[in-house]
Design a protein around this nucleic acid. Sequence first.
DNA 1: AAAAGTATCCAAAACGTTTCGGATAGAATT
DNA 2: AATTCTATCCGAAACGTTTTGGATACTTTT
Lengths: 336, 336
Amino acid sequence: MAVTIKDIAKYAGVSVTTVSRALNGYPDVSEETRERIKKIAEQLNYTPNSIARGLVTNKTHTVGLVVSELIKPGAYHPFFLEVLAGIKAGLKKDKYDLILFTVDPESQDVTSYEKLCNDRKVEGAIVEGLKLSDPYIEEIKRTQIPTVLIDIPILTDKVGYVSSDNVQAAFEATSYLIKLGHRNIGFINGHNDAAVSFERLEGYKKAIEKNNIPYKEEYVFFDDFTQEGGYNSFKTLVFEHPEITAVFHASDLMAIGSFKAAKDLGMKVPDDISIVGFDDIELASLITPGLTTVRQDTFKMGYNAAKHLLSIIKGEKPQHILIPHKLVIRDSARKI
Amino acid sequence: MAVTIKDIAKYAGVSVTTVSRALNGYPDVSEETRERIKKIAEQLNYTPNSIARGLVTNKTHTVGLVVSELIKPGAYHPFFLEVLAGIKAGLKKDKYDLILFTVDPESQDVTSYEKLCNDRKVEGAIVEGLKLSDPYIEEIKRTQIPTVLIDIPILTDKVGYVSSDNVQAAFEATSYLIKLGHRNIGFINGHNDAAVSFERLEGYKKAIEKNNIPYKEEYVFFDDFTQEGGYNSFKTLVFEHPEITAVFHASDLMAIGSFKAAKDLGMKVPDDISIVGFDDIELASLITPGLTTVRQDTFKMGYNAAKHLLSIIKGEKPQHILIPHKLVIRDSARKI
DNA sequence: AAAAGTATCCAAAACGTTTCGGATAGAATT
DNA sequence: AATTCTATCCGAAACGTTTTGGATACTTTT
């Protein structure tokens, strides 16, 4: 059976109170007594019971990570692993543990966001991968649970968010294509249930309009952030607009889908058409030619989400944390 | 403040005991009283305090997932996401939560495996990504904590493991190359700190020897399961043995590294050399030509690891769970 | 000498639940 | 009618820790 404070008290010939106070650094215990108790605790291999401690303090030293549709086959989570690694790194110093909650529309009908967090007594949560229409969105706007969202722009007394500067990043990517001489630039965007889709569209528009190129709504497609989405949109785009010489995408997977579609149509990248992506997932460097894309620092995104959550838990004011991005120039876009 | 059993007892005019027994389905509460209590609990939005419950029952309904070196940049975790998705799916029905523990040699010096699990009071753990020389390996051989390992062959009273049939899979992949007419087949294996490296080597050998091809130790290289590992080994292998017409790899990443090396050497895949991988990560289908490889069902691996852990927690005997694999024939190996 | 202050210890309540052992009213059996 | 049985309720201990309020012996001040 596990060693408890009571065992140590008995061995040391002091009270449970004195043991608790000695181990927790309270000043009203003599140094001699404190050292004696510490030595005994070590000898007995004592480790505090986090459950009992949690009952008293009402704190669990855990946070949740809520991910939408992780289990769904073929779901879009191309950089979840790096975000996760970043989150763990961000929690490490403060010794917080991470519980993974995977949700989907079915489970969300049964379990509200607050019930999810309360059931497990997490002190806060990071939320990733929600669509704008997700039922948790409205709830999170009102929640008193410290929360940090990734790529979802909600800011309240208890809720902050972390994202890249999607507007600026899309602006830079589109500007790069313009700098290469392209003027007929298509944009294959994500579905309109994602905040980043609107932001990236805004960036694309700004670059187009800044260069006195007329914005053409018919050059912009909306689809799932998947290869299939890219593939299908690309085919329709170049069929309907053969004058297009470059396509910017809201994700690398979409860009890769377009690669495949181009190949199937007998088009060469970048000879016949230039392609630019967004995210810089591992795949981007491995395909031929290497994909020119916007790199999001997903590890840093996770790391900052964790740090920010801990600061909100400690009472600081939530805010929007911007993560730097970088245009990575490989070989999939050429000068015309 | 959160609603407790005491509040419900007061509202219902019964004791705390009766409320607990009513909500937990004990038979010695009348149906009329039970329904009344349930209705009040719902009205007051009561949710049981998992901390208090855990203190009494000494059960937390959580399990740990211990992952080695997730945070380390460039670490090898190409199918972790699917394993994770599988684990979550496996835990869902029994309503167990998952706590993610990331470890590395530094942290393992400070926190033993049992301390890690005890500190958080998880009821068991799944362990992934450990090397054979990992300090936790010896500890896990003796542990009384229900444990399931992934790809690490340890079987005790409390420890089981889940893996593909690496021997058979490697045998089939090598046999396939032989069937295509190859007799000079190289094998770029993983480092010898991984159990699967030995198993895959055994399978390669069995296929070679079964076809009366002399086994040549100099045809076998050991390196990290990374692109760099594949790249470097491939260059040396084909330099020292230009007679080789095919190479089998212990991972897709290594195979992709070899692709790059072949390209840098002016060799065409599969015209000049056939390449076969292992894992079937997403990349495998996306490179050109598509990689012929062994598909591991990583979702099922995670799913079965979780189910098996729950069965060990419930007292069943640990065992070795084999997950089916499949040779996926794409275009990177040709007939000679 | 008496009063006030301080260092160092402790008893017990509290946290919110489960569960053990028991109370009691009514029904069934002798 | 008396005894035994049963359905349905309950008091309080326990889980392992923290923390509040206090006790006591010794020191310092008046």
